[in-house]
Simulated assay, not measured.
Amino acid sequence: MLSKAVLSQTDVSKMLAAARSEAEKNHWAVTISVVDDGGHPLALERLDGCAPIAAYIASEKARSAAIGRRETKGYEDMVNGGRSAFLSAPLLTSLEGGVPVIVDGQVIGAVGVSGVKADQDAQVAKAGVAALS
């Protein structure tokens, strides 16, 4: 039988706080979503001034990173590189800003961010993931 870490609510709170801090430091109005390894929601925070659609997009970025076991930037790069057939994959977003949480080589969840430029979304998500280091 295999064992792996599981995100606790303390972990989720640390990730949200770190991601929020990164966004606020840069004056970015974003939504931050944290999910478990199956892409199921654990937390969502929409900062003041962020468009409502970002809540949906951030959640899908997080879910795609968790179940795809990789950053969503890889999917965006595939599509932008001409592999348009990938748009029919069961992941719901191919947009940068979803980052998996990896512990001991196992994906245990993900952080998704939406609301600013793609690389800025990813910067905020990575700050959230880094809070567990």
Rank of each mutant, 00 (worst) to 15 (best):
S8Q: 06
S114T: 11
A55Q: 10
S84K: 04
K73D: 12
L91W: 07
K61P: 02
P41K: 09
L7C: 00
M78P: 02
I32D: 04
T72I: 14
K117Y: 11
T10H: 07
Y56F: 09
M15I: 09
D37K: 09
A58N: 07
E60T: 08
S133D: 15
E22D: 14
P41W: 09
A125E: 02
D11S: 02
K14R: 08
W28K: 07
P52T: 15
I102S: 00
Q120I: 09
Y75A: 09
A85M: 07
S133T: 15
A29G: 02
D36L: 08
Y56H: 11
G81C: 06
A131T: 08
S84Q: 08
M1F: 15
D104V: 02
A125H: 00
I67H: 05
A89M: 04
A58K: 04
V103C: 02
I57M: 08
A5K: 04
A65P: 02
S114A: 15
W28T: 02
K117S: 14
I53N: 05
A89I: 01
V101M: 04
V107W: 05
G49V: 07
E71R: 06
T72S: 10
W28Y: 12
G38A: 13
S88R: 08
A65M: 09
G98P: 00
C50V: 09
G81W: 13
I32C: 04
G97S: 09
A85H: 12
S13D: 13
R70Y: 01
V101W: 02
D77I: 10
K61I: 15
A130P: 04
I67V: 13
Q120G: 11
G109K: 05
V113P: 00
I108N: 02
P52A: 15
Q120H: 11
A51R: 14
S88G: 07
K126G: 10
G112P: 03
E22I: 03
S8M: 08
R69K: 14
V34R: 05
K126T: 10
F86G: 09
T93F: 06
P90Y: 14
A125G: 05
S59T: 12
A54Y: 06
V6K: 09
A54R: 10
E22Q: 13
G98I: 11
P90I: 15
A29E: 10
V107P: 02
S8W: 05
E71C: 12
M78N: 10
A110L: 06
G109A: 03
F86T: 13
M15V: 05
S64W: 02
P41S: 08
W28L: 13
S64E: 03
A131R: 00
I67L: 09
D121M: 06
L132H: 05
A55V: 15
A58C: 10
A66W: 01
L7I: 05
K4G: 15
L7K: 03
N26F: 01
S33C: 11
V113T: 12
V99P: 00
D119Q: 15
S114W: 06
